[in-house]
Design a protein around this nucleic acid. Structure first.
Length: 523
RNA sequence: ACCCCUGUAGCUCAGCUGGAUAGAGCGGCGGUUUCCUAAACCGCAGGCCACCCGUUCGAAUCGGGUCAGGGGUACCA
C-alpha cells in the first residue's frame, strides 16, 4: 500500500510515533499528507511550520517526488510518476488474513415466516463480507442458523393447525402471540392437501416448508451459505446440557422463584437473565450460548454474528456466556445492522409483518432487480438506518448509481472492442510514461487506492466503503473519457490508455464482485 | 426509567482512530454531442455540521449535558 510505504518512511525518522497518513483534499498540492508536524511541535513547544519544514527536508523515499509544506503545518507528498506506473504494473498485496478462519453467521431468520427486508440487508452485508474476507486471504465461512425447535416452532404449528380447522369450516383460534399472517393460510391449505395430521407432523412440515423457502429466496438473492446448522442438532449433541452444567459448576447461575438465572451482570449486562424457566423450559439464551460453544469447538479464529437491531439486548448474554465458558471476549464480534424502511412516492411504508406489502424479500425481488437491491443495501454503513428509495431503485437511468458504475465498465469494454476492430489490441504491457494528463493520474491513483479501501473495509467489517469507492472510480473514468480520446492517431498512446482503462474495468469488476452485483459487458 | 442507533445542503446520505475553504447523488437553474456508449461531462445556486459547555495549537469528528426522531428493554426469538 502506498499509504503504508509513506508511513514507513516517516516511522524511520520518528520511531514509536503514531503516524497518520491520509489523502490530500481535492485542489491542494500533493497526494498524501501527514499531520506529524503538529504533534511534534505541540510536544516540543515549537512553531509548527518550522517543524514541518525541518521534517520535510529530511524526508526521502523512492516513491516521493516532492514534499510540500502548507499552512498551518501540513506536510504533503506528491508521488513520483515512475512509482505510480510501477505500482500499477504490480499485483496488489491483498493477503491480510493469512489464512485465518472466520465464521460469519447471518440472516438466521426463524423458519416461521418469510424473510423480511431487514434480514435481506443482513444477507447483503454478510455475503459481501464473506467475499471481501476471501479476497483478502481469510478462510471465511457463511452460516445460517435454523431455530427448528422451541416455543416459536410450537406457536407456528398451533397457528397452522387452527387455520386448518377454519379452512375445514370449524372455529379456529390462533394463540395471541401466534402467527396471524396470510402466509399461514397458504401453508395450512398445503398441509390439508397433503393429508397430514397431528401437531408433530404439522410442526415438522411447517418448519421444513420455511427452511426450503429461505433457502430458495437466499439463492434467488445470490447468497450462498456453506453451513446450515439446526437448533435440534445442538440439542442432540448435548451442547445445551453441557453449557448448563458448566455454568452451574462455575457458580455463574442461581435459582430464584424456581427459575435458573445466568449471572450476565458479571459481563456488563444490566440484569441477570433467565435461562431455565420455573416450568422447566429453556429460554432462547441457553441454546444460543450452546450454539456458540458449538461454533467455538469448530476452531475458528473469529466468530462474527450479524443481527438486527431488535437483538441489541442479547449481545451481553451471548458474549458473557462464551466468556463464562472460558473464551476470550475478542473471540466474538457482533454487528448490529440497523433497520430498513421502504420509501415509495416519498412516503415511508410500514414494515410490520402484516401491514407491509414489501416486508418480504421475495416480494421486493419480484419488483426490483437483485443488483439494485444489493447495491442499495450496501450504500449505507450497517450502523445507519436505511431508507430504501423504491422510486429511485426502479429508475433504469442515470440517476441510479448501480447503473452509473456498471455503465463505466460497459463503456470501457466497448472502447476496447472498438480499438480491436481498428487493429489495436489490448496490450500486455504498455509504455506508461506516455500517460501524463491529470485525469490519467487521477485514474491511476484511484485504481491503486482499491487496496487501501479493502484494508479499511476489512478492519471495520464494513463493505459499504467499497460502494462509495466504486462510484468515485466510475466518476473519474467518465471524466477522463470526456476529456481524452483513448483510440486515436498515436498508436503507442492509444495502447497505454487502453491498458489504463482495462485496469479500471478490472477494478470495477472486482469491486462489484465483492458487493455481489453483476458487471455486464454491454448496456 | 435504562440501553442502542441517529440528527451535516430542499431530499437521501458521505466525512467522525480530531487537522487545510465541510463533500457526493438526487431535485433546481444554465451549458456540452462533426469524435471510442449522453445510462456521460461541466458550471451556478444552496450549510450557525440540532443546541450548550468542555478538552485541544486545532472539533462536524473526542467528553459532559440539553432537545428531537427511531429501535430495544419478557421466565418470546
Amino acid at each position: 500500500m502506498i499509504r503504508d510505504d509513506i508511513r514507513k518512511v516517516l516511522e524511520d525518522l520518528f520511531p514509536g510515533e503514531e503516524i497518520v497518513v491520509d489523502y490530500v483534499p481535492e485542489g491542494k498540492e500533493g497526494d498524501y499528507y501527514t499531520n506529524l508536524a503538529f504533534k511534534v511541535a505541540a510536544r516540543e513547544g515549537k512553531d509548527p511550520q518550522d517543524v514541518a519544514r525541518s521534517i520535510a527536508e529530511r524526508i526521502k523515499g523512492p516513491m516521493i517526488d516532492r514534499v510540500t509544506v502548507l499552512p498551518p503545518a501540513f506536510i504533503n507528498f506528491t508521488l513520483r510518476k515512475e512509482y505510480l506506473y510501477d505500482r500499477l504494473r504490480k499485483k496488489m498485496a491483498l493477503d491480510i488474513g493469512g489464512g485465518k478462519r472466520i465464521l460469519i453467521e447471518y440472516v438466521s431468520a426463524n423458519p416461521t415466516g418469510p424473510i423480511n427486508v431487514v434480514s435481506a440487508r443482513a444477507a447483503a452485508v454478510g455475503d459481501s463480507l464473506i467475499r471481501l474476507l476471501r479476497k483478502t486471504g481469510y478462510k471465511a465461512e457463511a452460516e445460517y442458523y435454523v431455530n427448528d425447535t422451541g416455543r416459536q416452532a410450537d406457536l407456528l404449528a398451533e397457528s397452522v393447525s387452527q387455520r386448518m380447522i377454519e379452512i375445514k369450516g370449524g372455529q379456529g383460534k390462533i394463540p395471541e402471540d401466534g402467527y396471524h399472517g396470510e402466509y399461514v393460510m397458504d401453508l395450512a391449505r398445503e398441509i390439508i392437501t397433503r393429508g397430514l395430521d397431528g401437531i408433530d407432523a404439522i410442526r415438522e412440515y411447517s418448519i421444513e416448508y420455511f427452511v426450503r423457502d429461505h433457502q430458495e429466496v437466499m439463492r434467488d438473492f445470490g447468497v450462498v451459505f456453506d453451513v446450515w446448522t439446526r437448533e435440534s442438532d445442538i440439542y442432540r449433541g448435548a451442547y445445551v446440557a453441557r453449557v448448563l452444567e458448566t455454568l452451574r459448576s462455575k457458580g455463574k447461575t442461581y435459582t430464584e422463584d424456581g427459575a435458573t438465572f445466568f449471572r450476565t451482570t458479571e459481563f456488563g449486562d444490566d440484569k441477570d437473565r433467565v435461562i431455565v424457566t420455573k416450568d422447566g423450559r429453556n429460554t432462547y439464551l441457553l441454546p444460543d450460548i450452546a450454539y456458540h460453544l458449538h461454533k467455538m469447538e469448530r476452531k475458528y479464529d473469529l466468530l462474527v454474528d450479524i443481527w438486527g437491531p431488535d437483538h441489541q439486548g442479547h449481545i451481553k448474554g451471548i458474549a458473557g456466556g462464551l466468556q463464562a465458558l472460558g473464551y476470550p471476549a475478542q473471540a466474538l464480534r457482533v454487528l448490529i445492522i440497523q433497520e430498513v424502511k421502504i420509501k415509495e412516492h416519498g412516503e415511508l411504508m410500514s414494515m410490520s409483518k402484516r401491514a407491509g406489502k414489501f416486508a418480504a424479500l421475495a416480494d421486493l425481488l419480484g419488483r426490483v432487480p437483485r443488483d439494485v437491491i444489493r447495491f442499495f443495501f450496501l450504500m449505507r454503513s450497517s450502523s445507519q438506518p436505511l431508507d430504501f428509495d423504491l422510486d429511485l431503485a426502479l429508475r433504469q437511468s442515470d440517476e441510479n448509481p448501480v447503473y452509473y458504475v456498471q455503465y463505466a465498465h460497459a463503456r470501457i469494454k466497448s472502447i476496447i472492442a472498438y480499438a480491436a476492430e481498428g487493429g489495436i489490441a489490448l496490450p500486455e504491457e504498455a509504455d506508461m510514461s506516455l500517460l501524463e494528463e491529470k485525469e490519467e493520474f487521477d485514474l491511476i491513483k484511484d485504481i491503486l487506492k482499491f487496496e487501501e479501501i479493502l484494508h479499511d473495509a476489512v478492519r471495520n467489517l464494513e463493505p459499504y466503503q467499497i460502494t462509495y469507492y466504486l462510484i468515485d472510480l466510475a466518476h473519474d473514468f467518465h471524466l477522463f473519457y470526456q476529456k481524452h480520446r483513448v483510440v486515436g492517431e498515436d498508436r503507442k498512446l492509444s495502447q497505454a490508455r487502453l491498458y489504463l482503462i482495462e485496469r479500471t474495468a478490472i477494478t470495477i469488476k472486482d469491486g462489484l464482485e465483492l458487493l455481489g452485483v453483476s458487471c455486464p459487458e454491454k448496456m
